[in-house]
Structure formats: C-alpha cells, structure tokens
Design a protein around this nucleic acid. Sequence first.
DNA 1: GCGGATCGCTCCCTACGGGCT
DNA 2: CAGCCCGTAGGGAGCGATCCG
Lengths: 366, 366
Amino acid sequence: MTREDGSKSAGQATKHGALARRFRQRIRSGALKPDQALPSEPKIARDLGVSRNTIRQAMRDLEHEGLIYRVQGKGTFVRARGSVRRTVALVLHDIAYTTHPFTSAMIRGLGEALENGGYSLDILPCGRDEDRANLSGLAKSYDGFLLGSASMDKQTVARLIAEELPFVFVKNYLPDLKINAVLLDYVQAGRLAAEHLIGLGNRQIGLIYAGEATAISRDFRLGVETACTAHGLTLAPENIHDAGLSVNAIQEIIPSVHDVTGLIIMDDELAVTAIQALAAAGKTVPRDMSVVGCNDMLIASMSSPKLTTVRLPVTELGRQAASRLMALIEQPSLPSDNTMLEPELVVRESTARPRKASAQRGNRQG
Amino acid sequence: MTREDGSKSAGQATKHGALARRFRQRIRSGALKPDQALPSEPKIARDLGVSRNTIRQAMRDLEHEGLIYRVQGKGTFVRARGSVRRTVALVLHDIAYTTHPFTSAMIRGLGEALENGGYSLDILPCGRDEDRANLSGLAKSYDGFLLGSASMDKQTVARLIAEELPFVFVKNYLPDLKINAVLLDYVQAGRLAAEHLIGLGNRQIGLIYAGEATAISRDFRLGVETACTAHGLTLAPENIHDAGLSVNAIQEIIPSVHDVTGLIIMDDELAVTAIQALAAAGKTVPRDMSVVGCNDMLIASMSSPKLTTVRLPVTELGRQAASRLMALIEQPSLPSDNTMLEPELVVRESTARPRKASAQRGNRQG
DNA sequence: GCGGATCGCTCCCTACGGGCT
DNA sequence: CAGCCCGTAGGGAGCGATCCG
C-alpha cells in the first residue's frame, strides 16, 4: 500500500519522481507545447547534475502516461493532446443492459454527440466489485466516464473524484451526492401517467414498476402516488407490483391484478407484454382495462393497440450527458450542475374511460 | 514503423527482449506458476551472464504486461491469471450498432455465456482507423476479442494473429480468411424467405437488403436469387433496393416499389416500417402485398399484422461465439473452426397468396 | 528482538550502436 | 562527414524492505 502510493505519487522521494513531476507540470500548464522537443537527456543530465539513467526512468514514466513520445536520433517531444482520439467510457451495471431499448436510445444520443465532438465511446460493465475496482485502473485509458449504473457506489465515485477524472451521471444518480448529472424527471413521468388515467375517470389504479432498488424507480412511484393523493385517491399497496425489467415477471403479475381499471407500467415493452397477457386472460385493452407505458420506445407505436405512454427524451438525455462530459474534459474547472429533462404524455389507443365509470357518470348511449 | 515493430515483437534483436520472451513463454506455458518466485535479479545475471540493468528492463516490460509483480525485499513473482477478472472485448463498427435489436440479442447471448464463464465484456468501436490502430494497444487489456464488425480489415486481424491474441468472428466474416468464426447462414435465410413467397404463388418478388458492403448482406441476396432461379423466376435489378439499416431509407424506397406482390426485407424493423409506409400509400399487407422480414426480433410478433419472418438464432450465436472464445483463451492451440447456425421460417400474418395469382389459378369465390 | 542475508529500487559511470540532421 | 540524439548494455555503490535464524 504505502509503497504503491509512494511510487505513484512520488514526486519528492526519488530523483526520477521529482524529474517526472517537474516535466509533467510544465507540459500540463502549457509551458511545453505539443510536439515541442524537451531538452536532450545529456543536457538535462549536465544542467541538473543527475545521471542519464535517472532521467531515462523519468522519461519512461512520462511516456507510459502518454505525455511524451521519443524518437531515436531526434529527441523527446510533448505528445499532442489530440493526437490520440479521445475516448470516454459508458459504465453500466451489466453489459446486458445495452440490450434494453431504453439504453439503446440513450447510446444513440451519446454516440451522436460524441461523434460530433471527435470522441470514441466504449461500454464497460461495473456490476461486480472486481469490475469497479478495475475501473480506476482503466482510468488512464479514458478521458471521462458516463455513469449509467444504479449500482455505482460512493467509494468508486470518490476514487474518480480523487483522481480528478471527469464524470457525468446519466439517468441514474446517487441521492446524496450533488454532482454532475443529466437526469429524467421520473416523478413527473409518474404523475403524468396517473393524471391521465384519473382524468379519464379511473378511480382504481395499479402500478408495475422496477422496485425500490433504484432512485428513478422510486421517483416514478412517488409521482404516481402524488397524483393519486392530489385527487383524493390512494394507491393500494396490493396494487403495486415490482417486475424489475423482466418480461417473465409480467406474466406472473398480470393474473394477480384485480379491481383495477387503469394500469401504469414503467416500461413500454413490459406494457405491451402485459396487454398480451391481459388478452390471454380474456381482458381487452382499453375496453376492460387502460394501460399506460413509459419511455415511448418504438414498440409503443407499433403494437396493437398502440400504447399510450409517457415520452421521455432519452436520446436527448444521451446527447446532453455527452456534451456535458466533453465540456468537463476540456474545462475541468466547470462548476457542478444537474440537468433535469421533462417528460410528455403521448395518448394513443391503450387508454379509455372505464366502462362502469362512464356509465355511472355520463350514462351515455352505447 | 520498423522501429515500433522491432521494439514490440523484439524477442531476438535485444537482450532484454530475448529475456522477456523467455520468461513470457515459461509463464504462459505454466512452467512458472502463479505467485511462484522468479529467480532473483543477481542470480539471473550470474547464470546468464547479462547485466542486472538488462534484466531489470525485461522485468519492467513483463510487469507492464501484467505478467509479473515485484515486491521489494521479497522477489519477483508470477501474477495469478485469475486474480484480475478476465475480460473480452466485443468490437463493433460503431458503438451505435448496440442500438440495433439484432446486436442487442447477440449481446444477450454473449453476456450470458461470458457471465457463466466468469468473464466480463466490454464493447468497443472500431469504425475509424484510429480506433483500429488503438486496438492492438488495448490488446494488453483484454484476454480476447469478439469481432462483430464488417469493417474489420485484414491488417488488424493480422496484427491480432501476430500478437497471438485469441479472437472469434461473430456474424460477420472476412471472405478469404479461414479463421475462427460463428456465423449465421444468411444464404439459407434468403432462400427460405424467397421460397415461402414463391410457394404462396408470388411470381414478382422484391428485395430490400443492406447492400453489397457486407458479406452477410451479399449472402442474403444470393440466397434470394438462388431460390428465384431454382423456380424459374428472376429477381429484377430494379426490384432490389439497398436500405442499409435506415428506417428513413425505407420511406423513400417504398413508393418506388412496383409490380411486386412479395417483398423480402432483411430486417424486421425495416419490414414493419415498410408495412406502415405501404398502408400510408393505400396498400394493405398481406392483401395487396406480402412482406417477409428477417431475424424474428420482438417487434415481429408485436406488430399488426404480425410479421412473417426468418428466425435466426441470434442469442445462440452470441452464446456459441462466447464459448468458442473462452475455449480459445484457455487453450490457444485449439484448431481454427467455423460454425454456421441455420435459420427457420416463422409464418405469421404478413404473407398470403397474391390476389391476382389466386384468382387466376384457383379462381376461387370471394 | 536483533543482525545478517537477500531481495528489489535508486542512482551513478562508461561505452557502443543506429538513426537523424 | 561530424555531431547530436535516443536505445542498449555493461560496470558498481548504497538504500530500504523482507525474512530467517
């Protein structure tokens, strides 16, 4: 431990450390400019009274850090910052999340913005402790990090901060850390979905969401409950179900949904699956039950009936997060900032006035 | 150029290179086991008659490669291979491809198999020359590579071979390289799609595919043409369209599709989009036109009408490719092998007998 | 608990070679 | 060509860490 730290932060203990530190500062500050030659090894040796061997060790370290390059017969030069394509990493809980349409849409936005900025994007998992431990090791390989995992822990973030590595939270966030984040307003998304159903006359509302594990899922539930309370309704605990992101879970949950005329499902794919499961159980959407999805993925407009959903600007989320990270990389002193993107209700065919309610209230014909 | 190659592949030119090579082999072969101590620097110096300085340089290189670790006062030791979680990289043309449902399904299979094997998966882009150049630099970071990009070039592959890095082609391949690959039989996929339409009585068939740029797209067209020829039909050039993977391209292509009763589209999303575009132009599928997709993604069974398509075992492709790569990593001497996975026709609602044809032939009522 | 042996780490010196200008 | 550059290779001295008797 002590040793490793010593040899890394060095800078004073050893002569080569001090030398490396000296040149590192001069390069970072801009005193030495890209492709400018450093003094030759023999010259430094004479000037500073150190052996050439020591100088070579310092130079070797700087070369490994990517700060300089050496050409036999010519000299040692400062590496141009842009000579290596800059790369940022998107860190997900599990690489399998790329599979989800939401993540796909986000990556589309990220890739687009980063491409325009001349950056490359790699995707890394961080669900396992080893992966996260490895992350700071990979730090040298990346110019910045997009943190898209709900399983990101404070220690890892603290390490990123300690090493002064730029990062931006995308979609997920750590509740008690006020740091760079580009987020979606899931409270508002839940509220919009619930208010739409309530506005149609639904008094019994059910919720299928991703559970209490992630902040955004909690936010969504909070939004639904807030809307219900505001209209004098209660979201009964037995009408709240945790499906995670699993299509299979939906199949198990649907049969246990009773006494509900409106169902809010936090994911379009799950919502479409739910509609099919309801159909299999003899219930037609929206005649017997209204269903509202969330995200407005492609499938929402392709399914039958077309899904009423809450559109979240996912691709825009990616774009803004990427822009924010690039700004941070190019100007590390930027103040921390949180951005919240707002959702929008998209009414299609999967929601309608509940039959009993409309009969009781309007007593309309048909 | 010459220099870089020299210093990298070294091994014979310089003494420290030869030394490093010597120990690299002994470690890789298992002659030196994890956490086993290497001979001490002075001992190697005496035994081999080289200076300690030279030995230290070789050890430095090995340490940077992660093969050994050194502890002052104790000695130099072989690093346990399993101490760092093994990681493989999926190399795609562009990170945006993760966005495509096909890639998602493949990643699902890859992730599943790798997870079971105790591996992590990173996703890297390689579309730009800089990215590919960087790839061999990243070689040290990864235990193997899954090559999923059609833009993979021979030089890059040659470099991987030269550095003895395990790799497996997934889905895409380089026509003249007989190397490890797990592939889908796109010739057969095209043939199945065409034969289904022909079997229904369609005589005028159109094809929308991803162009001539990639081997699999060419294979698909070949399959369609083969089936047509076998049944005495010709696939007219004006009925072959290149849409890439672009939903927008479909919108432009559909209006120019004439005199065709059956349309084969190499991607389900594009096929569903095409059906909507046809509807907008007043043509109903399958009454006025039969449409066959390819891949059997989720959307194929969710759309209306449900899409007849050719199911390709994409997730299985991922699983097998991952297994193959893990086997190669653990036993580099495995002989090269190609695996081809076969498609299957899934008939749903988007295909039917053409009206004219059925009228002409059966002259049925209605 | 302490001293000696051993280890890797730092630092110095010299010399030769091959590439660049 | 000479003169400079970095790369390689050799020599040696002393230090701090580790281990063992």
